[in-house]
Design a protein around this nucleic acid. Sequence first.
DNA 1: CGCCTGTCATACCCTGGGGGTATCTAGCGA
DNA 2: TCGCTAGATACCCCCAGGGTATGACAGGCG
Lengths: 287, 287
Amino acid sequence: MDVDLRKVRYFIAVAEQLNFGRAAEALHIAQPVLSRQIRALENELKAQLFVRDKRTTELTAAGRQLLADARPLLANADALRRRVGRAARGAGTFTVGFMPGLIVTAAVRALVARHPGLNVEVIRTGFDDQTDVIHDGRADVSYVRLPIDRRGLQVRPLTAEPRVVVLPADHRLAGKDSVDIADLAGEHLLQDPDLVPEWRDVSQEVRSGRRRAEPAMHSVEEKLERVAGGRGVAVFPLSTATFYTRPDIVHVAVCDIGPSHVCLAWDSTRRSPLIAEFAAIAGELAH
Amino acid sequence: MDVDLRKVRYFIAVAEQLNFGRAAEALHIAQPVLSRQIRALENELKAQLFVRDKRTTELTAAGRQLLADARPLLANADALRRRVGRAARGAGTFTVGFMPGLIVTAAVRALVARHPGLNVEVIRTGFDDQTDVIHDGRADVSYVRLPIDRRGLQVRPLTAEPRVVVLPADHRLAGKDSVDIADLAGEHLLQDPDLVPEWRDVSQEVRSGRRRAEPAMHSVEEKLERVAGGRGVAVFPLSTATFYTRPDIVHVAVCDIGPSHVCLAWDSTRRSPLIAEFAAIAGELAH
DNA sequence: CGCCTGTCATACCCTGGGGGTATCTAGCGA
DNA sequence: TCGCTAGATACCCCCAGGGTATGACAGGCG
């Protein structure tokens, strides 16, 4: 009748490892049990998922299809759990996620004004986990900056704001009113180059293929620390740059770079009047 | 660990009926079993879902939250089943949904040209079920006309096309090149007035509150039949009106009415390279 | 060739939970 | 007071999910 999420989880493990024994180990069950469950899943779906030829296991077309769909389904189920748990504890709370630098108070106050009893909370996110808070049910809506993975989300554009380059205070460009991308050709960018597509065209290190890999820096603070240390430069939205002020760091407008787009995002499978209302308010406040 | 979809289905039945006995009957199980399963679900989620006070059952906040999320989750699980089933049978097929009047052949041919082995199929939809084919897994993408319920979908706008009013051939306005909304003030609209918001402002029957309920007409053909019979008029996108030609029916452009927006929609939880590619092709062909 | 190893399937057992029926209990209406 | 309704409790059965032990088969290696 319904698919069994436990079996789907087992399937994912096998599909990832392509080895029943190791997958069983990862799942903390015995290998024969896993073999049987996968067979049961194949019977329930009336579809062969693996080709096992005594020495190696591979996915079939149906298996690849299931692998593509299975993770979002499990993620949805998990988000459902968390949302129900939240609803059970904090009665009638609405949670808004936001990245540092984005101002959400106006929209939150407008929502509270219309729903006096409502308990609105905010949750801070980083750039890398700005959509995670939606998927795992910690937030009902979240302010996000593009680009994001739109899977499972509904996204409403709000504003665009200029981006600036963040430099050490003693940098040769530090005093300028504005710079061009070309002025930064020799700099090392402390970010994923995909975030600044224009920079790829002029960067010497990208063009020469000698760009070094960056250690993972997940927070703005970490990037600023490296900027201050002269290890490179970073491009931030203006509001982020002004939010984090340090005496040893300055920011300069970049003329020929695309703006940062701020959107409101929420789980696309949900329809809650509160979400719709908040989206309308946020859109209104963004002009 | 994982939520049990069977229990979730049981929960929905109880939440709909607010009566364990009738819900059990609808589910074809005995009432004590249902009581126990709901309790088990409450324990698994660590959240009370119903308040039972010996005479009546009501949803708690957590229950309302679960009810809101449960149906999309079950729908997702069902769509997964179907997609896997399709992948198991027709190996490597890509299915495009479309409404009559929309031309999909160009995009389909472009996709086939890039993937010679790929088996692309099309499935015809009506206006009412244009998104259903995506949710239940029958189609990978679908051409849709706004307005639609965007829940669970990712939508890419393609084109806008003018809308026309469809009239009996012997109608007083039948010969005109174009008409205004105001000219239709006295007519009976054979559609949901929400589809033609401008019409609400001028319609005599809506303003006087004397609009009669229409019997459900789910197909274009049925509406045309009633138009031909002089029972009212209908507003269609131009391509739909030209697609269904009948000698006893004509269509006339309406100047001051919003266009029909055609979009490509697909399941927002999925990311398939083929979907992305088809969306790009469709966007390209729409200029 | 024979042996070992890695990998999945088979055979068998045990237990928990999902299914059932019978019955109890708390309100409410006549 | 006597039902009547609706949910809860008690108890039973049995299948499915967990386990262990072992088989079957392919490939590598001495």
